Simulated scan of single mutants.
Amino acid sequence: MKLLRQSCLILAICFIGEVLNKIFNLPIPGNVLGMIILLILLSTGVVKLEKIEEISNFLLEHLAFFFIPAGVGLISCFGLIKGNLIGIIFITLISTIIIMALTGLTVQLLKKR
């Protein structure tokens, strides 16, 4: 029952983000807006971490399952991307390296603070 309550809280915040996106026609996707709202609520203490900790850990442990639909979509559209495969792999590798470097630098800067 606790997991259901926690997931309902997260889904409600995500829903609020979607509604705000539709009402104000923002260029930010509704799910990202919901995550920003959740971050603000957690930072200000309106929502305590304990209220969503178990469901968050559960979702993080099973994160790989969320990538299955994207993988299936890539496989089903392989004929469309076959001609650009080398470019896609190159861009993926370069962007992964950049993201890893920036994440490492960000963590180092935050640790110094």
Results as ranks from 00 to 15, higher is better:
Ile88Thr: 07
Ile86Arg: 15
Ala101Arg: 11
Leu93Val: 10
Ile40Gln: 04
Ile81Ala: 04
Leu59Asp: 08
Ile91Glu: 07
Ile36Pro: 00
Phe90Ala: 09
Ile10Ser: 05
Ile99Val: 06
Glu53Pro: 05
Lys48His: 12
Ile68Arg: 05
Glu18Gln: 04
Asn31Pro: 10
Arg113Ala: 06
Ile28Ala: 04
Leu93Trp: 12
Leu4Thr: 08
Lys48Thr: 09
Asn25Ile: 09
Leu109Asn: 13
Leu20Val: 04
Phe58Leu: 12
Leu20Trp: 02
Leu39Lys: 13
Ile23Lys: 05
Gly87Phe: 04
Ile55Tyr: 09
Leu11Tyr: 04
Leu26Tyr: 00
Gln108Met: 14
Arg113Val: 10
Ile40Ala: 12
Ile81Thr: 13
Leu59Lys: 13
Gln6His: 09
Gly79Tyr: 01
Leu93Arg: 09
Gln108His: 11
Ile91Tyr: 13
Leu105Ser: 06
Gly73Ala: 15
Thr106Ile: 14
Ile81Cys: 12
Phe78Ile: 14
Leu11Gly: 07
Lys48Arg: 07
Thr44Leu: 14
Thr92Tyr: 11
Ile68Glu: 07
Ala70Cys: 11
Thr92Trp: 08
Val47His: 02
Leu33Phe: 04
Ile99Met: 08
Lys22Asn: 12
Ile68Tyr: 03
Val19Leu: 15
Leu20Asn: 07
Thr106Ser: 15
Lys82Val: 09
Leu60Ser: 08
Gly73Tyr: 14
Met100Phe: 10
Gly79Met: 06
Val47Glu: 05
Gly45Leu: 01
Asn31Cys: 13
Asn84Arg: 15
Leu49Gly: 15
Phe78Gln: 15
Leu109His: 08
Gln108Leu: 14
Ile98Trp: 02
Leu3Lys: 05
Ser56Val: 15
Glu18Met: 07
Leu26Pro: 00
Gly34Cys: 01
Met35Leu: 14
Ile36Trp: 12
His62Met: 00
Glu50Gln: 11
Pro69Tyr: 04
Ile81His: 13
Lys48Asp: 11
Thr44Asp: 08
Leu38Arg: 03
Glu61Lys: 13
Lys48Ser: 14
Met35Asn: 12
Ile75Lys: 12
Lys111Asp: 06
Lys2Ala: 04
Phe90Glu: 04
Ser95Ile: 06
Glu61Ile: 08
Gly17Tyr: 00
Leu110Asp: 04
Ile94Cys: 08
Val72Asn: 03
Phe78Leu: 09
Glu54Gly: 00
Val47Trp: 13
Ile97Tyr: 05
Gly34Ile: 01
Leu38Trp: 03
Lys51Val: 04
Val19Lys: 03
Leu59Thr: 11
Ile88Cys: 06
Thr44Val: 14
Ile97Ser: 12
Leu105Pro: 00
Ile98His: 03
Cys77Ile: 08
Met35Gln: 00
Met1Pro: 10
Phe78Ser: 09
Met1Ala: 11
Ser7Ile: 14
Ile40Arg: 05
Gly79Asp: 00
Leu85Arg: 08
Ile28Gln: 00
Ile10Glu: 05
Leu63Asp: 05
Ser7Gly: 03
Phe24His: 01
Leu49His: 12
Leu4Glu: 09
Val19Thr: 11
Ile36Val: 10
Cys8Val: 15
